[in-house]
Design a binder for these strands. Structure first.
Length: 314
RNA sequence: CGCGGGGUAGAGCAGUCUGGUAGCUCGUCGGGCUCAUAACCCGGAGGUCAUGUGGUUCAAAUCCCUUCCCCGCAA
């Protein structure tokens, strides 16, 4: 089967790997976003899918847009039987969706119809979900609204953060795509319309999402911290105005405090105990401004923080 | 050349403005106390202060300059 792969970030690259290594599948090309200037010095960074593809001799296309005729020509030359799309980042016009005889399938990082959109993994953790997964579906002209083919579930534990869950889902996404291809081959593939009930959107993570509101419950802040770790991290500011990001935390038993939310209650035992709405939270890992991630114990040793400090953004 | 912070002992930091024999909290090693301990007490090791036969000086971690590396912000 001639497969054209379209995707951009790490999760897509992992999925591409799975499909690439699958028997009977020929990945005839990879379409990904253009290189973009990123980071300090605005250096050009190649998307992970491009990196993988080039390492394995897969031809790469990085069209600025799919809306003009240029890509349509390419598509006809490639003549794929199936197009797999994973986190590509551009809307596919109808001529692309309709071209392959096996259609365009997509792997999405949630159990649809929940968490459609850009940041399903982070949002699921932030919202305190205990289970999520990968949904394989046929694409239509909406955002993650296509008919569903299969779902693979994945539990979310208290030990999970965005990083660990992302890695698990990346593997599942690869499996989901391989299973989808198998079902196409043996004719057992099915399609199920997404129910309207329970549908919602997982909006892109913005800066506002990473600012911590200590008036929220310890559990909510905990979910925010791990949902944004290791990227971009939940953050606040120290009394001297420096940014302080939290990489990890724990919710201790039922402890209460009537201190103002955001107040550092103690720094004993290598943990920063902070007053939140209706309880306390122990922060165990931080990233000080201009520094690398470090255990809270190290940060405390440098005496950058002490009981009584009020953490507050702005 | 987008803006900014930083590179001092294994870790995290102070000291730099106002040059004058390198310090703190830990870790580590040895000893002590203890039924016991990640607790406590005593003692020790460990640093060319990123780089440069660089500059200034009687004297540079500290002032000036070079190069390299790390990080945050912004996109």
């Amino acid at each position: 089967m001639r497969v054209l792969f379209m995707g951009t970030p790490d999760l897509a690259a992992e999925c591409l790997r799975a499909v690439y290594e699958k028997e009977g599948v020929e990945v005839i090309g990879a379409v990904t976003q253009t290189d973009k200037p990123k980071g300090r010095g605005m250096k050009m960074i190649a998307p992970p899918v491009k990196v993988f593809a080039e390492e394995h001799g897969i031809p790469v296309w990085q069209p600025q847009t799919l809306k003009d005729g240029a890509f349509e020509e390419t598509l006809k030359e490639l003549d794929p039987d199936l197009i797999i799309v994973v986190a590509y980042g551009k809307i596919l016009p109808p001529y692309v969706l309709e071209y392959p005889k096996y259609g365009c399938v997509n792997a999405h990082g949630s159990l649809l119809p929940k968490y459609r959109g850009a940041a399903p993994i982070q949002r699921a953790i932030i919202e305190g979900e205990t289970v999520t997964g990968i949904t394989s579906m046929y694409m239509d002209d909406g955002i993650d609204t296509g008919d569903m083919i299969l779902k693979l579930e994945c539990p979310i534990t208290d030990e999970d953060n965005f990083g660990t869950l992302h890695d698990k889902l990346a593997v599942l996404a690869g499996e989901a795509m391989c299973m989808t291809i198998d079902r196409m081959n043996d004719g057992t593939i099915t399609r199920e319309k997404q129910p309207d009930d329970g549908a919602n959107y997982a909006a892109k993570i913005t800066k506002e999402d990473s600012v911590i509101d200590f008036t929220k419950s310890p559990r909510e802040v905990f979910n925010q911290i791990r949902g944004l770790s290791p990227m971009p991290y939940a953050m606040t500011r120290t009394p001297d105005g420096k940014l302080l990001k939290f990489t990890s935390a724990e919710v201790p038993g039922a402890e209460e405090s009537d201190a103002e939310p955001g107040t550092v209650l103690s720094v004993d035992g290598g943990k920063i105990k902070i007053a939140c709405g209706g309880g306390v939270l122990n922060v165990t890992g931080v990233v000080p401004e201009g520094k690398k991630p470090m255990p809270a114990a190290d940060y405390i040793r440098g005496r950058k923080i002490s009981a009584g400090d009020l953490l507050k953004y702005e």
